[in-house]
Design a binder for these strands. Structure first.
Length: 229
DNA sequence: TGATGTACGTAGGTTACCTCA
DNA sequence: AATGAGGTAACCTACGTACAT
């Protein structure tokens, strides 16, 4: 099967003459295996990372090597392979980490923008009351229509998706409003916002989330901020 | 049946040599 | 020509396993 020429065996023949009892310091004629030998060994390693004793003898014979040389080559090969595998794994983990870090920064900025928008809305809600009216920048369509009582918060362009989400608040939603705004208290959108700490979104807490399902909206079919629509 | 000794294989680390920029 | 870095064959050590006694 494997043809091993004298030329192949020659470069290391002097090395193989070194007996097991010879100290390595005296092994000054160490030679690398030939390309053909390496090729054969690599091929075998690909299919089997460990050699059975019988196979080892056969390979050694075919490649004109000592069985011990074959065994040592496989030992070293396994060690090198494991080392490279660790490097590959590390690279993958590094890439995943960078990806998650980028997502985190993106979400952080998005959250900050939302907090600002909520602050603006909160101010707009408070302002009319202070001025003794409900119609203003935050207009209530039908604000004079107590029966229907459909309160609409008009959104300006800066409101983004919140403008959409805050579209209609009917009086029938008083229960919902109570839940979110507190019993009988005036609406305070900021109460919906977590304290301005990053305890939940800090990297240390990432481990507790499945990143892929972090914002999975498949359950309800619409974004969480659309709870009022 | 459990304890002990021996042989063998492996992983992990190290040494010594070779090659090349 | 000298040299330092990297690759690699060979070795060492510790440990685990199988087997015989």
């Amino acid at each position: 099967m494997l043809e091993c020429t004298k030329e192949m065996a020659e470069p290391f023949s002097s090395a193989t003459e070194v007996t097991a009892t010879t100290k390595k310091k005296k092994n000054k004629n160490k030679r690398r295996f030939s390309d053909e030998q390496i090729k054969s060994l690599e091929s075998m390693f690909k299919s089997e990372t460990r050699l059975e004793p019988r196979m080892k003898l056969q390979v050694a014979k075919e490649l004109s090597l000592q069985p011990r040389q074959v065994a040592i080559w496989f030992q070293n090969k396994r060690a090198r392979w494991k080392s490279k595998q660790l490097q590959r794994d590390y690279s993958i983990l590094q890439a995943n980490h960078d990806n998650l870090a980028a997502k985190y920064e993106s979400l952080k900025k998005e959250r900050q923008a939302l907090v600002i928008q909520l602050q603006k809305l909160n101010d707009l809600i408070k302002k009319p009351k202070e001025e003794g009216q409900y119609c203003g920048q935050v207009t209530a369509t039908n604000c004079n229509d107590g029966d229907k009582g459909e309160t609409t918060v008009k959104s300006d362009s800066s409101m983004g998706r919140w403008g959409h989400s805050l579209g209609v608040l009917s009086d029938d939603n008083s229960e919902i409003k109570t839940d979110y705004f507190g019993l009988g208290e005036e609406p305070n959108l900021m109460s919906m916002v977590d304290p301005a700490d990053d305890s939940v979104t800090s990297p240390e807490d990432w481990r507790s989330f499945e990143s892929d399902g972090l914002f999975d909206q498949s359950n309800c079919g619409y974004p969480w901020w659309d709870i009022w629509s």
